[in-house]
């Protein structure tokens, strides 16, 4: 049975190795913070971190995660992750969410992006847009996403 290293814990999932990480999280482990949006890596709602990289869990099989660390929205925003905490705070501060369904994925993309920034560097508006371009929000919260990512970057400087 495959063992997954998720948010600092080793969890065994009785699931076919071809199962996407998304469905192991949601249906097998009951971790529903990661969302199903398109099933085809087109919308970003299912974004999680695999060894620190933002990946689309809807098309990444659990076999690709063996020996690697998965981090989800639950652990990114529980206060233990400095960058995640700053992003979460900026999201609340800017009242970003509308329906909120895509926001787990947005926050995971924003967090991975800010973690990848060299220390002390403030991202430009164009860099923020490029980093967030893989995440769709049908409610159209983009203006506040922009502002929240920029503010989180400032808070981390």
């Amino acid at each position: 049975m495959p063992t997954l290293h998720i948010n600092g814990r080793d969890l065994t999932v009785d699931t076919d190795p071809g199962t996407p990480i998304l469905w192991a999280l949601r249906d097998t482990l009951g971790m529903t913070g990661t969302k199903f949006g398109c099933g085809a890596a087109l919308c970003g709602a299912c974004t999680v971190h695999l060894d620190g990289q933002a990946i689309r869990s809807c098309i990444t099989p659990i076999s690709a995660a063996e020996g690697k660390k998965i981090k989800t929205i639950e652990a990114t925003t529980d206060g233990s992750d400095r960058v995640g905490a700053a992003v979460h705070a900026a999201w609340v501060q800017h009242d970003v969410a509308q329906c909120g369904y895509c926001q787990s994925g947005q926050i995971m993309s924003a967090t991975a992006f800010l973690q990848s920034q060299p220390k002390g560097k403030q991202p430009t508006a164009a860099e923020i847009d490029a980093a967030m371009a893989g995440n769709i929000c049908r409610c159209g919260t983009y203006a506040r996403i922009r502002a929240a990512v920029a503010d989180a970057a400032k808070a981390l400087a």
Partner: peptide, 20 residues
Amino acid sequence: TRLDARAKSSGRQDFGIDVK
């Protein structure tokens, strides 16, 4: 600020799809 802003910024907001 929305009452659900925190829950919706942390994956803790349940939607219909999350009912189990």
